[in-house]
Design a protein around this nucleic acid. Structure first.
Lengths: 282, 282
DNA sequence: TAAAATTTGTACGTATGTATC
DNA sequence: CGATACATACGTACAAATTTT
């Protein structure tokens, strides 16, 4: 048989994920979403591992990551358990798997949000339950609290963190309000990539209250149900983020450097031993 | 210390993925996308494993899956290698990881597409390269070929398969045309869940040529760049699918049963032994 | 004061799958 | 391509800690 030249197509590397990392991320999500609040106790290891469909050793591995990240505290004994002690640690800071996102693709991320989120907000407005609306209002309240705590011109790290949590929580609430699991899954794809940007971008804001304001505008627009208003408010929110990001990346020598600095672990630190790394198939 | 009741929030099970499955899926994607065509030879095992960032045994494991699925053929010897021999096996039929999708959530999937795809098509129209447009046209051509091969009223399995490939390929081409990696990733979330629906739905079509026609309408609309036309054509394409699905699920005793039949493995057959299952964190 | 209940902590044996040669 | 060595995850069982009864 005649020799056939191989295809010229080159396959991108796959990124593998360890169960413990997936589990830790799942729990972190629940904390960030406000499903489990600070001070609450998670189910026992036995119950949790059953719910998650994994073994207890694997769960314990995940718990180690969470403890190391300062998100939870574990107490032994009869009235002990796994307690949530913080909600302010972005997943990427804890060394969790973050999809590879070259810094220069952050505009692509923002554009994807611009494409997706107005539609999601519209659908949310049509289908939100009272509980959904309350979750949105809670997120807005949190964002204003963050703004209040920071009256000075400079934006502290804590304030930026609170604001990122509020924003993330708002987005999750909106996605949930669609009552559509596929939309939620797609929003997760966006949110997992947003961690890196938010923190950096928020520090590029002229005024921290702008961010809270834009969240409230979106929330009120959704409650009003007015189509044009929803689209405008959602677009405005992303505009704000984009402008802030532009300012930050212009200040820094390079956008990539800024992005990397904001999210250690983003560049995937050359794989400790095996080729064990994170995340889904492309 | 007072005893604290655990949170009432229940965690959804995580779905784990094995490297070989991820790799097999990645290669399948390339085949379905038309990146590597039938008859082509893939790179050598050594080259492939290097590209994919995995060991050769893992790759070989993945190849076993592909061979079993009838997608590729392994020929030994100097002029041998890994040859693509088919593109017509949906990933789910090969036992690949398919995200859990309860049959009753297929309307949610279709609604998510309705929300997302018109926007993607608009963006694609603005940014498509000539190569992108050609990929779309190729997909349309393929769909018409499928229609031609099936002039009778009843739709054969082969025809349905060809049509699903053409549709998938068209969607991939449109997503690629956005030149936006995040949008592509989100489209993947949709497409991976579509496999189950397409095959079943297509058989519910009044006329197989409707499907090819709707693809061509979308393709021409995108080339025209006309906003209203693009939105209408994309919506019409999903309408067609939704009507077909409605017909299929109405015929069958239950929509869930039909969905499960179309996609074995969908319902996650009660976990053979461990909790080995597929895919990303929720 | 002591026993019981609950929950984390630790350890072992097995199976599976991956990496190295 | 095969065989061996290693890593990972599971299941289970038991020990330790702490509060409640």
């Amino acid at each position: 048989m005649a020799r056939v030249a191989p295809t010229s197509f080159v396959f991108a590397p796959v990124q593998l994920v360890r169960p413990a990392e997936v589990v830790a991320f799942r729990i972190t999500e629940a904390i960030l979403a406000g499903d489990v609040k600070v001070g609450e106790r998670l189910p026992s290891e036995q119950a949790l591992s059953a719910q998650l469909g994994i073994s207890r050793p694997t769960l314990r591995e995940a718990i180690k990551l969470l403890v190391h990240a300062g998100l939870v505290q574990v107490l032994p004994g009869s009235s002990g358990g796994l307690f949530v002690i913080s909600e302010s640690v972005p997943a990427n800071l804890a060394g969790f798997p973050v999809p590879d996102l070259p810094g220069d693709q952050i505009p692509a991320l923002l554009q994807a949000r611009r494409l997706f989120e107005p539609q999601v907000a519209l659908m949310a407005a049509q289908r939100a339950t009272p509980a959904d609306l309350e979750r949105m209002r809670d997120a807005v309240t949190l964002s204003f609290a963050a703004g209040q705590a920071n009256r000075e011109r400079t934006i502290s790290h804590e304030t930026a963190l609170m604001m990122t949590i509020a924003s993330t929580r708002f987005n999750i609430a909106v996605a949930r309000a669609t009552q559509n699991s596929v939309v939620m899954k797609m929003m997760e794809v966006l949110l997992r990539r947003m961690d890196a940007v938010r923190l950096a971008a928020i520090r590029g804001l002229d005024d921290i209250s702008e961010s809270a304001q834009s969240l409230r505008n979106s929330q009120q627009a959704i409650e009003s149900g007015d189509r044009a208003r929803i689209e405008a408010a959602t677009a405005a929110r992303i505009d704000l983020l984009e402008r802030a990001w532009g300012r930050v990346s212009a200040l820094a020598p390079g956008a990539q450097a800024a992005a990397a600095a904001a999210a250690p672990g983003l560049k995937a630190e050359a794989a400790p031993r095996g080729a064990r790394r994170s995340s889904r198939a492309a």
